Computed example of a mutant assay.
Amino acid sequence: MKNKFKIILFLTVFSIMSSFTVHKFYVSVTQIDFVPKKQRIEITSRIFIDDFEKVLKNKYDKNFYLSTKKEIPEADAYIQKYLEEKIKLVINNKPYKVTFITKEVEDDVLICYLKVQFSEKITTFEIYNSVLTEMFSEQKNIVHTDINGNKKSFLLTYSERSTLLEF
């Protein structure tokens, strides 16, 4: 009876652990800061490399090998093109194009640095973020903002891709 209990306990624990490894977690985290002294908005987006590569390969039909020795020379241009399409800002009711600056790797995350030149007072700030949602409908894009000294956080998803802040 004792052995039967151990086997059932083992199978239960194994089953629970297996369910965690089968389901993948799709998330990105983006920080957006208005830096008046630099007259720009700084954006830092953290995206899992493997998911990002799958989306880029699917969209552009190329293997990118991001942040490896085999990375293709035009990778940054494709990242810029993709992020321009997927991260959009409308400030004071006027759309602004994000500019890709550079990237770096931290563990299995690609950190992308972007900016928007802007020096006026911000009264409205709309954020659109649909990174990876075209391939992963369960993708969650967490956005943290620090604008005019106001810090806010949002969860953007496949069905809710934007949010509007008013100051």
Rank of each mutant, 00 (worst) to 15 (best):
M1P: 12
K2D: 12
N3P: 02
K4S: 14
K4L: 15
K6A: 08
I7C: 02
F10I: 12
F10Q: 07
F10T: 13
L11R: 01
L11P: 02
T12M: 15
V13S: 05
S15N: 06
S15K: 03
M17W: 10
S18N: 14
S18Q: 10
T21S: 14
V22G: 10
H23Y: 09
K24G: 12
F25L: 15
V27Y: 05
V27N: 14
S28T: 06
S28Q: 11
T30A: 05
Q31F: 10
Q31Y: 13
I32W: 05
I32C: 05
D33T: 10
D33L: 07
F34L: 09
F34K: 14
V35Y: 08
V35T: 10
K37E: 14
Q39S: 14
Q39P: 02
E42K: 05
I43E: 07
T44I: 14
T44S: 13
S45P: 01
R46S: 13
R46V: 01
I47W: 02
F48C: 01
F48A: 06
I49K: 04
D51Q: 12
K54P: 09
K54M: 11
V55A: 08
D61N: 14
Y65S: 11
Y65K: 02
L66M: 00
S67M: 10
T68N: 02
K69R: 05
K69D: 13
K70F: 00
E71V: 00
P73F: 01
E74T: 05
E74Q: 09
D76C: 01
K81Y: 03
Y82W: 05
L83N: 01
K86N: 15
I87T: 03
K88Y: 01
K88D: 11
L89T: 07
V90D: 04
I91T: 06
P95A: 03
P95L: 03
Y96G: 06
Y96A: 13
T99L: 09
F100T: 04
F100Y: 15
I101S: 15
I101Q: 09
T102R: 15
K103A: 06
E104F: 12
E106T: 15
E106C: 02
D107S: 14
D107V: 06
D107P: 02
V109S: 08
I111A: 04
Y113F: 14
V116Y: 06
Q117E: 14
Q117C: 06
F118R: 12
E120L: 09
K121L: 08
K121N: 09
I122N: 03
I122V: 15
I122F: 08
T123E: 12
T124P: 03
T124S: 13
F125W: 04
E126K: 12
N129I: 05
S130M: 05
S130V: 04
S130Q: 07
S130T: 08
V131Y: 02
V131I: 13
M135Y: 10
S137H: 05
E138S: 10
Q139P: 06
K140R: 13
K140E: 13
N141I: 10
N141Q: 11
I142H: 08
V143D: 06
V143G: 01
D146S: 11
I147M: 07
N148A: 04
G149N: 08
K151S: 08
K152F: 00
S153I: 00
L155G: 09
L155W: 04
S159I: 11
E160D: 09
E160W: 02
R161V: 04
S162P: 07
T163D: 01
L164T: 11
L164A: 11
L165P: 03
E166T: 10
E166F: 03
F167E: 13
